[in-house]
């Protein structure tokens, strides 16, 4: 009993002494972010090709919602596999999948925006960092319901009417790729890549991509395309140089 009282006194007095101390005692360590030294950083660029026959444009039927037919003002074609006349593949997601372990990158403060426009998601493919603001806009005169079907992150869906304010969400964990649909318009699809680092890119219409400011080292670079699946390759990046990583998807024979 006496022991307990003594202990109590010790605790109490400790409490008192802490109170009189003006220095905050419970400060969490600020996360130590990895800073890239530009002098030792390099880049990766490349081109992505599709070797199979160029797919024929498929008309999308938007009759489910006449307002979409009008909003789109013209014919709408499927965009799940877009190949140009030279076999270049746009809309593929390229990212560093291994080699950055243990590095903690700061979350960008700029939001990544997806717009529901012409009854499409724009862009169809996007990447963002964990915790980065994902801003959702509806520019259409119709209601949309964005539904990221996440498996690692939380799945959610939310309706946005014409003229509604943009809304924001975040994805907390890395996830490749989150398929997004519109619950109201069955043809609307988008894909989101969430990474805990900034080294990702979406190929342009000419199949090109570039990943800049990457610390020198050896990495696995991966590519994902919604119809064609994934590929990867090893690549070594030296300081102040550009390494090339080209990918080719074979067409179905």
């Amino acid at each position: 009993m006496k022991m307990k009282i003594c202990l109590l006194l010790v605790v109490l007095s400790a409490g008192c002494s802490k109170k009189s101390n003006t220095v905050p005692v419970a400060v969490l360590d600020a996360p130590a972010y990895f800073k890239v030294d530009a002098a030792s950083a390099g880049s990766i660029s490349g081109k992505v090709k599709f070797a199979g026959p160029r797919p024929r444009p498929q008309l999308i039927n938007m009759e489910e919602d006449p307002a979409c037919v009008m909003a789109h003002a013209g014919k709408a074609y499927d965009e799940s596999l877009v190949v140009d006349a030279h076999g270049a593949l746009g809309n593929a997601f390229v990212y560093i999948s291994r080699g950055l372990e243990g590095k903690n990158f700061e979350t960008p403060t700029t939001p990544v925006v997806i717009d529901q426009r012409g009854c499409w998601f724009r862009p169809r493919l996007l990447g963002l960092q964990t915790g980065q603001t994902f801003k959702i806009v509806n520019s259409d005169p119709v209601t949309h319901n964005i539904h990221p079907m996440a498996m690692v992150n939380r799945e959610w869906n939310h309706s946005q009417g014409p003229g509604d304010d943009p809304m924001t969400r975040r994805f907390i964990k890395p996830e490749i790729m989150i398929p997004v649909k519109c619950n109201i318009h069955s043809w609307m699809h988008a894909y989101i890549g969430v990474l805990d680092h900034p080294y990702f890119a979406v190929t342009k219409d000419d199949g090109s991509f570039e990943i800049k400011n990457l610390p020198a080292g050896t990495y696995t670079i991966s590519i994902w395309q919604e119809k064609l699946g994934t590929q990867e390759q090893q690549i070594t990046v030296a300081a102040q140089t550009n390494a090339t990583a080209n990918f080719t998807y074979k067409g179905k024979s």
Partner: peptide
């Protein structure tokens, strides 16, 4: 918030908005 009956029908066609307490009858 919803201005027209079409917006209301679309809202339900979309399954409303997900949240912790969504009514089970709000099925897809």
């Amino acid at each position: 918030r919803l201005k027209t009956l079409k917006e209301v029908v679309d809202f339900y066609a979309g399954g409303g908005n997900s949240n912790l307490y969504l009514d089970p009858e709000m099925k897809k």
